[in-house]
Design a protein around this nucleic acid. Structure first.
Lengths: 181, 181
DNA sequence: TGACAAACTTACTAATCAGTAAGTAAAATT
DNA sequence: AATTTTACTTACTGATTAGTAAGTTTGTCA
C-alpha cells in the first residue's frame, strides 16, 4: 500500500501497474492480486487509509486544540514535507486529473477525500477569522476551496518548476491571510 | 490534434491510446502514426499548438490593450469556458500530475507552458497593482503562482465536486484582488 | 499519360496490462 | 498429529499498448 500510494502520487492511477509493485517487492504480480483482487480495490484501500489518517490527525487533541494559525501551519506542512520535497502530489489532485478514466468506486473515494479536506480547512479558516487571526473577504467555503486548490496545483507546478515555487505559494497564502491590509 | 488535446485534458497522457483517436476518427491507428510517429510527438505537437495559441492571444491588441482588470477576466474566462464547463483541466496541470512517467520532450513542453502562463499573469498583476486596480501584499511572482496553481487545482476539484466550486474559487480571487481591505 | 507523393489500410510484432486457476510451502489452529 | 489457513509461485489468458513494414488508393503536377 505504501508503494501504491507513492506510485499514485508520482505517476497517477494509469501510470503504474501491478508489475511495478511486484518488482519493487521482489514478488510476483499474483501476490498483489491475493491481497487486492483488482487495481480499484488497491487504490480504494490506499485512499481509505489516507482519509482515515487525516481524520485521526484532525481529531487528535495535538492538532484540534492548536490555535488556528498553527493549525494552518500544520496543514501546510503536510504538503511541504511529505509531498513537495519528495516530488509527490496530493492524492486528490492526482486522481481528479484522471477522473474520467477512473472506476466509479475510486471516484467516490476522491470526492470523499476532497470534501473532508475542504470541510476541515473551512472550519479552521472560519475559526481563525472569528478569533481575529485571519483576514479575508467572502465566505470561508470559497476561501477554503481557493487555498486547497492552490496547494494541489502548486504541488503539480513544483514538478515542472521546482519546489521553490511551491514554498513561494505557501508564503503568499500566509501573507494574504495574516496581514490585515 | 483536437482529439488528442481533449483526451489529454480528460484522461491524461497515460489515459488514452492511439486506438481511442483512431476509433473516434474511424481510421486505423497506423493513420495516426503516419502524421505523428510517436505518442510523444503527438503530445508535443498539441502542447506547441496550445502555447502558440496563447502567445497569439496575449500579443494581440484585443487583449494586450485591455485594462488589467479585464485582462484578468479574460484569463479566468479561458478556464471557465473551455475547461471547467466541459469537465476538462489545464494541459499543464494534467501533465504535471503524471510528470515522472512522461517522456523528457513532453516534460520540457510542460515546463515551457507553465513558465509562459506564469510570466503573463505576473506582468498583468504587476501592471494592475501599479494602476491601483489590484491589491495584494508580497511580490507579483508569488501571487501569480498562487492564482495559476489555484486555477489548475480548481479545475481538477470541479471534477469531483462540480463546477460551482470552480466558480466560487474564481469569485474569491476577484474578491481578494479587487477589494482594498 | 505517367510519375510521384500524400494519406491512408492491412497485417503484423513484441511488450505490457489486469486478472485467474491451480499448485505449494509454511505457519497457525484444532 | 491432522487440518486448515495464509501467503505466496507458476503458468497462463485475452485484451490492449505503441510502433512497424509493406501494400493500396487518390489526387496533383509535369
Amino acid at each position: 500500500m505504501d508503494l501504491a500510494e507513492s506510485f499514485l502520487q508520482e505517476r497517477g492511477f494509469n501510470g503504474f501497474s501491478y508489475a511495478h509493485i511486484a518488482d519493487a517487492l521482489d514478488v510476483k504480480n499474483a501476490a498483489i492480486h491475493y491481497h487486492f483482487r483488482t487495481k480499484d480495490d488497491l487504490a480504494c484501500a490506499v485512499m481509505q487509509r489516507y482519509r482515515d489518517r487525516f481524520q485521526l490527525w484532525v481529531n487528535n487533541s495535538r492538532i484540534k486544540d492548536l490555535p488556528p494559525g498553527e493549525k494552518l501551519d500544520w496543514f501546510f506542512s503536510i504538503y511541504t514535507n511529505t509531498r513537495a520535497d519528495n516530488g509527490k502530489v496530493c492524492l486528490a489532485g492526482s486522481l481528479e486529473t484522471e477522473f474520467h478514466s477512473l472506476p466509479v468506486s475510486l471516484r467516490e473515494q476522491t470526492e470523499a477525500l476532497t470534501c473532508e479536506l475542504l470541510a476541515w480547512l473551512q472550519d479552521t479558516l472560519q475559526e481563525g477569522r472569528e478569533a481575529g487571526v485571519f483576514h479575508f473577504g467572502g465566505d470561508s467555503v470559497s476561501k477554503a476551496a481557493l487555498i486547497l486548490s492552490s496547494l494541489q496545483g502548486a504541488l503539480q507546478m513544483a514538478r515542472a518548476l521546482g519546489t521553490d515555487k511551491f514554498h513561494a505559494v505557501v508564503e503568499q497564502h500566509k501573507q494574504d491571510l495574516l496581514v490585515p491590509a
